[in-house]
């Protein structure tokens, strides 16, 4: 497939990172699209969990909220929210937490709480929801966001959820036993943390993307892997699956939820 947008590449690259036997706690927005593309292509048996309590859900259209009726109707089971956070998340039964971010730093720490000072915010964002515990209780965390200097920053304004903190073994020092952020997928590149420092490092550029462009859209000094890969471009099946999913979603939401 020759023609695709950077956002499509981001979603499809994120979908590819998910495996058929994963149990994935799905954030709304870009993570939700990626998880469902994975389910509709190479990972038909993936277990998708949304924090509204729906386990093993198979929505035909992407939910607008984490609690759309579609999620419950197509789920294996729906549990109460306290049970979701206690038995399933805190109990260590979820392999991947998939999060978006308003602000991200090079160590995978995420801010979705405030821009500016907490007490006197410039912009009051929605807040963390389930993210503080998703980030510490899931086996590992994948992050997806669109690159922009104000999104990928040297210092985040608030630690909504903890990634690798100041890097190195900071998680272990706090007694956190899970891996934390292991993958960052943007509209331009695929990043993985350095094994020692835990700083996100560019491992693969999407087709047509230059190093300069990655640097110009990132607020910290970018580290590139010595051997850079090119992300394989979307296949016909991946792109068609994503576009059909988005078309069904648009029709359903604009129709006041009538599908």
């Amino acid at each position: 497939m020759s023609d695709f947008t950077p956002n499509e590449m981001m979603t499809i690259a994120a979908a590819r990172a998910l495996k058929n036997d994963d149990v994935c706690f799905v954030g709304i927005g870009a993570p939700s699209a990626a998880c469902n593309v994975a389910r509709l292509t190479h990972a038909p048996d993936i277990t998708l969990i949304y924090e509204s309590g729906t386990i093993g859900t198979r929505p035909d259209v992407l939910p607008l909220s984490i609690g759309d009726g579609e999620l419950c109707e197509t789920a294996l089971t729906t549990v109460a929210v306290p049970e979701m956070f206690r038995y399933w998340l805190m109990g260590g039964r979820i392999s991947i937490g998939f999060l978006g971010a308003a602000q991200l730093d090079r160590f995978g720490n995420i801010n979705t709480t405030v821009i500016g000072d907490y007490k006197n915010p410039k912009v009051r964002l929605p807040g963390g929801g389930g993210a503080p515990e998703i980030a510490s209780s899931c086996g590992e965390v994948f992050i997806t966001l669109k690159q922009a200097p104000r999104a990928m920053v040297e210092r985040i304004d608030f630690f909504t959820s903890f990634g690798h903190g100041e890097g190195g073994d900071h998680r272990q020092r706090l007694g956190i036993t899970t891996k934390g952020p292991t993958l960052l997928i943007t509209d331009l590149a695929i990043w993985r943390p350095d094994p020692e420092t835990k700083e996100f490092t560019v491992r693969s550029l999407h087709r047509g993307v230059t190093r300069d462009r990655v640097e110009a859209t990132c607020g910290w000094k970018v580290r590139f892997a010595d051997a850079l890969d090119e992300t394989p471009e979307p296949t016909d099946l991946e792109l068609t699956t994503l576009r059909e999913l988005q078309a069904r979603t648009k029709a359903a939401h604009e129709g006041g939820g009538r599908s």
Binding site: F85, R86, M90, T113, Y118, K119, G128, P132, E133, A135, S136, S137, F158, F159, T160, S161, F162, G165, H170, R171, L174, G175, I176
Partner: peptide, 13 residues
């Protein structure tokens, strides 16, 4: 009582 908030900013505010 639960396992949570580790490394997060909310306990400080």
């Amino acid at each position: 009582v639960f396992r949570g908030y580790k490394g997060a900013g909310l306990p400080a505010v």
